[in-house]
């Protein structure tokens, strides 16, 4: 039932922008002011969050390793799983960020009759994740055609490849299908897998519903509800937003304002939510630290500055009291010759 509230929230957001954009004069609010506020919140919030993380010290060297660490020359070192130099760490981080290697290692534990506990490889989460993330990336890049004038070549290439199947008119984008598929599978996983359902909270479901709402309004706008979706007015507004000369040339359909409002909410929500894994993946200490504890000493940055205190110094400090209490000292008090 934890998904009812986030679903209701997304429906409320749709209704707000749907009804709101129909009120004369409110197009400027939903088309210009809200997107500006959202992108400002996104950039400032994102930087604030990363700086906040960067201020937290890492007391211990805590890379997670799953391979032979660097040791003697005749023991084969696993460079990716137990990196000990910066370049090896960079290679490991790159593969983690680009290929989601840690999800590839996902296993499923099951209890069978016996009782017998089994573990087996489970690549589904990796598959749904990679499907979703790369579709989203391509969709963001594709949308740059609405913000950049003239449209640069690489964006045209992305656009061309994404619609290469030439299905229907306007042509179907492959990433529209794979994004929705990835979303449905990631959502279905939270419903069907008992353990994950138990762990899932409202703030796990909300981004799923929100992104689904964005995808659904985008697909409806492109393929079905085309009335008053004038691409020239929309591009002029988008280019206007990024050149600080926003103009709404003609009346644009509510479906566009709903789409834009949901994207604005996603941007504004981003820095305060789990979506910050975009920045967090770079800052995870278990991945970005080298496994070199036996080569270099890691000093806890919050250690107090304790000066060495030798016995001789200790005795110098307390000699008088020690002598008075008949504790033997190595160096006697200076004789009272005066």
């Amino acid at each position: 039932m934890k998904y009812i509230f986030p679903m209701a929230a997304v429906i409320a957001l749709v209704l707000i922008s749907w009804i709101g954009s129909k009120i004369p004069g409110m197009e400027y609010l939903f088309g210009v002011l809200v997107p500006y506020a959202a992108i400002a919140t996104f950039i400032i919030g994102f930087c604030y969050r990363v700086v906040h993380w960067a201020k937290s010290p890492v007391p211990f060297k805590i890379p997670t390793t799953c391979g032979q660490q660097y040791s003697l020359p005749w023991i084969k070192h696993d460079k990716l799983e137990a990196p000990h130099t910066t370049s090896q760490v960079v290679a490991r981080m790159f593969l983690e960020i680009v290929l989601f290697r840690s999800l590839w290692r996902n296993t499923k534990a099951e209890i069978h009759d016996g009782p017998k506990l089994t573990y087996e490889s489970s690549k589904w989460l990796w598959l749904f994740g990679i499907l979703f993330h790369y579709s989203f990336l391509v969709i963001v890049l594709r949308h740059m055609r609405l913000f950049l004038d003239p449209v640069p070549g690489p964006i045209l290439v992305v656009e061309y490849i994404d619609s290469i199947l030439q299905i229907g008119a306007p042509t179907l984008y492959m990433t529209d299908v794979t994004l929705v598929l990835g979303l449905l599978l990631l959502f279905g996983r939270r419903l069907i897998n008992r353990q994950v359902r138990y762990l899932s909270l409202a703030n796990d479901y909300f981004p799923l519903f929100l992104i689904f709402g964005i995808a659904a309004t985008g697909i409806l706008m492109r393929f079905f509800l085309r009335t008053d979706v004038d691409i020239v007015s929309i591009k002029r507004l988008a280019v206007g937003l990024v050149t600080f000369q926003p103009v709404i040339l003609s009346e644009i359909s509510s479906i566009f304002y709903i789409h834009l409002f949901l994207v604005s909410v996603l941007l504004a929500y981003f820095p305060y939510s789990k979506l910050m894994h975009l920045g967090g993946v770079f800052l995870s200490p278990t991945r970005n630290m080298a496994n070199d504890t036996r080569i270099r000493r890691h000093i806890n940055p919050w250690n107090p500055d304790i000066k060495p205190h030798s016995y001789a110094g200790y005795e110098d400090e307390f000699r008088e009291f020690m002598v008075n209490n008949d504790i033997p000292v190595e160096k006697e008090l200076p004789s009272k010759a005066d």
Partner: peptide, 23 residues
Amino acid sequence: GLIIFVLLITFPIWYNHGDAGEV
């Protein structure tokens, strides 16, 4: 890293350099 990220996010601003172009 943060500076590169912000520059990437604001790429459309640098690319269009304040010119909304002709409709």
